[in-house]
C-alpha cells in the first residue's frame, strides 16, 4: 500500500542540523496492522505525520498507492489524504467551536456526503463509542479520555483505508483501551490498514507487526 525509501527529516537549530528521521525504509501492505514503539522523543509521531502527509520530509521517496507523494502538489496530496487516510492525534485536536456531533461530522462535509447519510453515519459512531449523551457538548466540557474517543470516532467516520493513530489509548482507562484495541483489530479484519503508535506491549500485540524506533532510526 505504501512504501518509504531512505526518508530523512531534519531541522536546523542554531546552526546545528538535528535529525528527526534518519534513513527510514518502511513498506506497508494492504491489510497490515502495524505498531510503532520506541522511547519518548524517538520520532514516532514524526514518522506517523510523514506517513499521514501532515508533515514533509527532506530526503527520500514516499509512494502511497502507487503515487509518488514527494512529487505531488499540495492539492493532489490533500485529495489523496482526504480519500484514504484517517488520523488520530496524540493531543486529540478537536475543534473547540464545534460540538462533539459536529466534530465527528466535519470530515464527511469535506467529502460532500449527503445530509441524511451523514446523520446516519454520525449516529452510528456516537453509538459505537457510547457517547450519544455527549453529542451536544463542546470539547472543553469533556475529559481527556472522552476527547480521545471523539478523536478516534472522527478518524473512522469516513471509513478510511489507512488509519493512523498516535497513542490512541494514551488517555483511556484500561477497559476503554482494550475496547478500542478490539475495535481496531475488528476493523483490520474487515480490511482496514492500521498503523498505531503505542507505548504498551499489550496494545502492540494486537498488531501484525511491530516496528521499533530509536533516535529517528528503525531499529531491527
Amino acid at each position: 500500500m505504501l512504501e518509504l525509501k531512505g526518508i530523512f527529516k531534519w531541522v536546523n537549530t542554531g546552526g546545528n542540523r538535528v535529525f528527526l528521521l534518519k534513513d527510514v525504509d518502511l513498506s506497508v501492505k494492504e491489510g497490515e496492522f502495524i505498531s510503532i514503539m520506541g522511547p519518548s522523543g524517538s520520532g514516532k509521531s514524526t514518522l506517523l505525520n510523514v506517513i499521514g502527509m501532515l508533515d514533509d520530509f527532506n530526503e527520500g521517496e514516499y509512494t502511497f498507492l502507487h503515487e509518488p507523494v514527494h512529487t505531488l502538489k499540495e492539492k493532489h496530496r490533500s485529495a489523496l489524504y482526504k480519500q484514504y487516510i484517517g488520523f488520530v492525534f496524540q493531543a486529540y485536536h478537536l475543534i473547540d467551536e464545534l460540538t462533539v456531533y459536529e466534530n465527528i461530522e466535519t470530515p464527511l462535509l469535506y467529502q460532500d456526503i449527503k445530509s441524511s447519510e451523514r446523520k446516519a453515519l454520525v449516529a452510528d459512531m456516537l453509538d459505537r463509542f457510547n457517547i450519544v449523551g455527549k453529542k451536544d457538548l463542546f470539547p472543553t466540557q469533556l475529559s481527556g479520555g472522552q476527547q480521545q474517543l471523539v478523536g478516534i470516532a472522527r478518524a473512522l467516520i469516513a471509513k478510511p483505508r489507512l488509519l493512523l493513530a498516535d497513542e490512541p489509548t494514551g488517555n483511556l482507562n484500561s477497559k476503554q483501551g482494550e475496547e478500542i484495541m478490539e475495535l481496531f483489530s475488528q476493523l483490520n479484519k474487515e480490511g482496514m490498514t492500521i498503523i498505531q503508535v503505542t507505548h504498551s506491549e499489550k496494545n502492540a500485540s494486537y498488531g501484525t507487526r511491530t516496528i521499533h524506533l530509536l533516535d529517528g532510526r528503525i531499529d531491527n
Binding site: L54, K75, S78, Y81, K82, H93, D96, P107, Y110, R154
Partner: peptide, 16 residues
C-alpha cells in the same frame, strides 16, 4: 491556527 491544522488533518482541502 490550530483549527486550520485540525481541519487540514481531517481532510479539508485548502480551497475550502
Amino acid at each position: 491556527a490550530r483549527e486550520v491544522g485540525v481541519r487540514k488533518a481531517i481532510g479539508a482541502p485548502r480551497k475550502s
